[in-house]
């Protein structure tokens, strides 16, 4: 036993000196809390609040690349209100997010249920499933760009030159609706792993005894899914849904790499349009206004996901009846 421990075990034998003001300060809990949060708060202020604030400020100016602008009030937003391209990007974004998220969750949940079974090479398969999520989006976007190419598409090649089902190559991206659906398919492909792995984690927290009890009560597979799996998965589903909606809503790389918003702006999302106007187009103020316009949608979507899907009484401590 060394001296320190001996001292601690016999506190009475240790006469404390009166605390210095510094010691008192550090013993003061609110101060300590403030101090411990300072690094994080600093990081958030510098890297989140400042850029966000700057972005919002820019949206109310006519700044261009190279010229610092002046405050112009709502003029950028007034112009956007009358800009058909902007409204097209808004409806595109909402459509894209809604359909792609639904697709990701349907397929992701299905995949998670499959992977939750005892299958050979389970760990290996789970790792494989993550691939689309791991590959940098720019790289997978370029792969999809080749898949959708009007001249070199592997899909068209198989259908036309191998199976002889069609005479001409498929024009995936040449018309507005096919282009939108093509991008949604690529986005779903990319988003499934995130949903599947998250929901798989959720599935594994569900106690097998619940299923055993249901089995004894004679529940069918659908009943077990509907009455046990779904309710118990809801909390994690809400979180996954929120994140997935946010990722999809602010998607940029896929669209930018595959179509740049074409043909005639029919696949522009708000994020790609904001970039196009702000950086290549030099109109920083207008681009910022488009980006700022995304914020209400994002907040709305978050609230909808967290409160609409996630609100369960038992989450607040009562029964889930």
């Amino acid at each position: 036993m060394d001296a320190t421990v001996a001292m601690a075990t016999h506190p009475a034998s240790f006469v404390r000196k009166p605390d210095s003001w510094l010691t008192k300060l550090f013993d003061y809990k609110p101060f300590l809390v403030f101090l411990c949060m300072l690094p994080t708060a600093g990081l958030l202020l510098v890297f989140l609040t400042y850029p966000l604030g700057l972005g919002i400020w820019l949206a109310f100016t006519d700044t261009t690349i190279g010229q610092s602008g002046s405050f112009i009030g709502f003029e950028n937003f007034e112009y956007l209100m009358e800009d058909p391209v902007f409204w097209l990007s808004v409806t595109n974004t909402i459509f894209y997010t809604a359909i792609a998220t639904a697709g990701k969750f349907a397929l992701g949940l299905w995949l998670a249920l499959l992977l939750n079974n005892h299958i050979p090479l389970k760990a290996f398969l789970r790792a494989i499933v993550l691939l689309p999520w791991i590959v940098p989006t720019v790289l997978s976007s370029i792969a999809w760009w080749w898949i959708y190419s009007p001249q070199f598409s592997i899909v068209s090649y198989v259908i036309v030159d191998v199976l002889h089902l069609r005479d001409t190559y498929i024009n995936f991206l040449g018309e507005p609706w096919p282009a939108r659906w093509s991008l949604i398919v690529a986005n779903i492909w990319r988003g499934i792993p995130f949903v599947a792995i998250t929901l798989l984690a959720g599935l594994q927290t569900i106690s097998p005894s619940l299923y055993e009890a249901a089995l004894l009560d004679g529940a069918s597979g659908w009943q077990k899914f509907r009455r046990i799996t779904v309710p118990l998965l809801m909390p994690i589903l809400a979180v996954a849904l929120t994140l997935s909606v946010l990722f999809t809503f602010s998607d940029f790389q896929l669209v930018y790499a595959i179509t740049r918003g074409g043909p005639f702006n029919s696949t522009h999302l708000m994020a790609t349009l904001a970039f196009q106007r702000a950086i290549p187009g030099s109109q920083l103020g207008e681009g910022a206004a488009i980006a700022v316009s995304m914020i209400p949608f994002l907040i709305g979507a978050t609230i909808l996901c967290l409160y609409g899907v996630g609100r369960r009484k038992w989450q607040q401590g009562s029964d889930n009846d």
């Binding site: 001409t168 190559y169 040449g174």
Partner: peptide, 16 residues
């Protein structure tokens, strides 16, 4: 024109 030029980015005509 060859079909699909509405989707062409800067490298597409080089490739074709």
């Amino acid at each position: 024109m060859i079909p699909g030029t509405l989707t062409w980015l800067d490298v597409s005509n080089n490739q074709a």
